[in-house]
Design a protein around this nucleic acid. Sequence first.
DNA 1: ATTATAATGATAATCATTATCAATAAGGAT
DNA 2: ATCCTTATTGATAATGATTATCATTATAAT
Lengths: 126, 126
Amino acid sequence: MFQRYSRQREVVYGILSATDTHPTAEWIYFEAKKVLPNISLATVYRNLRELVAADMAKVVLTKDAKEHFDADVSQHCHFVCESCGKVFDVKTKFDQSAQGVEEEGFVVEKCDVVFFGKCNNCSEIH
Amino acid sequence: MFQRYSRQREVVYGILSATDTHPTAEWIYFEAKKVLPNISLATVYRNLRELVAADMAKVVLTKDAKEHFDADVSQHCHFVCESCGKVFDVKTKFDQSAQGVEEEGFVVEKCDVVFFGKCNNCSEIH
DNA sequence: ATTATAATGATAATCATTATCAATAAGGAT
DNA sequence: ATCCTTATTGATAATGATTATCATTATAAT
């Protein structure tokens, strides 16, 4: 997969795996620039794509027209707040094999579960 | 919501609600042109957006960088075949209230469940 | 140290979707 | 039925996220 080491990839993956905020490529780009001022946005996108292909990250689609990334590749659900746009991990486990989808003739490899609504903070404020 | 009748909206909604293939805006556009040769792609996009806002349709995100539309607004899951790209309805019911997400402080309004893998047809062929 | 080539940085290209705006048409008032 | 207001359309430009291109740089094997 990765044939050579690169400092840029190390930094991108380091930033992504150190946060649970499900950032966009652009956010990671600005964070990465603090460490490597010359890093290119293209390099960030390229490495994120490769990390996803290598199963070291996954994409969360939130309906804000941007891809969000997550270095936690374990099976877990997400919650998207429609007020503030933040993406949260949902602790509640979701057993996809218990859903009975295979019985309908589908070979299931993965499953995305995304809840939408208001987060704790936004529902308090109104 | 809709202040005036429009033949274009009627046709777009008619096409969408007559299929279970979860089409893209472009596909609906080509179908609509068979009935209204002068319809504009912008009109299709506009009406789809308004139908979604009016809860008469919803968007299915499949990772192919295109929005897919569904006139079935009842709570149901989708299956996306990573071989042929087709989007299927999953008959198995998914009880989002049984997931225990509310207990984590989230106010859940809706939920998208998308399974990925191989459809019946594609897994037979290999 | 040399060398092959993977990976980068800069930027152009792509492509789905949205915005703009003049022209058209729905539908209530006259 | 005609007039009038303005919602909606059609055509197209703009937007914005992501990807492709390509010359340059840097990894790591020889």
